[in-house]
Design a protein around this nucleic acid. Structure first.
Lengths: 161, 161
DNA sequence: GACTAACGTTAGTGAAACTAACGACGTCGG
DNA sequence: CCGACGTCGTTAGTTTCACTAACGTTAGTC
């Protein structure tokens, strides 16, 4: 009540005060961009008979070494319920190997195979190209900044969850 | 380009030599952050018996004036198939009014009601708070930059689709 | 007056993120 | 040693989201 009705826009003063709140809301920008990004990536990877989960798991294995399914789950953010299927697909293609852990019979130890490594290199290149398209309008410096901002936000929200 | 093969990293040391390509991929950062953002926003809005679609439609009506369902669909990015349900929910709550367009009998003209306006103000406040939490780790300047980068990316990808 | 296109609507698809519950196994406290 | 409890892999199911297909209806166009 202290404030006047913003009214229906007829060009009165202070046009900048309420410009398109929709376009400004970070949450909305995020989810829309994420949708498009996902589609871009999925389509790109589909042409190589891969999904983004495949990449996530292979990269995790390469970077952090072998691990149990639960470990991979935590590293990649894929739910362990869904990890089963992903690993099945990867194992079918002989990109990973699933072997029982001798020290703990509950676990499987997942290792990346030589083919898996080759595959990962291939996917890395594909993803490089796709990200080039994804980030096309940004300069190299801006891309770094963007990634850095995203990282900080994500870190914050994973710590506090 | 130093193309150092990261190799398998035996031992459990998890050294920093291979700075996690996963964490660097913008697509991954985007989709993970978007997931958390969505959850944050949805939970926040749910406590006010609202969904983000409600906000999108109400804000669009307030900022751009009344319109047909198809128009709203284009403005908000909601598919016209899904728009039906959203408008039903909004109409149930008397936040919008759906009236046949006298000039074109195919269309409905959707208008925001006074209650809808009040609602929108309320949701705007809620969203302000939620975004404060979402962007917590960023300084005001960084937040602007973040939004600006997102906007440019999204614009680019909507133009080229 | 026939064609085409846009409208609102209904139904359904596929993927993603998550929950619940299971039997099998390990670990720890008493 | 034993029971309580947590973890592991797995199966099944839920919900939500973005999207497609098809429909009858209505408008504009030739």
């Amino acid at each position: 009540m202290t404030r006047a009705e913003p009214a229906d826009v007829p060009g009165d003063g202070a046009p900048k005060t309420t410009p398109d709140r929709l376009r400004r809301r970070a949450s909305r920008l995020l989810s829309q961009l994420s949708t498009r990004s996902d589609r871009l990536i999925n389509e790109g990877l589909a042409q190589a008979d891969a999904r983004k989960w495949h990449y996530a798991v292979l990269a995790s294995l390469q970077d952090h070494g072998p691990g149990s399914q639960a470990t991979l789950s935590r590293r990649t953010g894929i739910y362990r319920s869904d990890m089963v299927g992903v690993l099945n697909e990867l194992a079918e293609r002989h990109l990973v190997e699933r072997a029982p852990d001798p020290d703990d019979q509950r676990r499987n130890i997942i290792t990346i195979s030589p083919q898996g490594r080759r595959r990962l290199r291939r996917l890395d290149k594909i993803l490089d190209d796709l990200h080039d398209e994804l980030l096309a309008p940004l300069s190299p410096a801006e891309r770094d900044q963007f990634v850095q901002l995203l990282t900080r936000l994500l870190d914050y929200h994973t710590r506090t969850s």
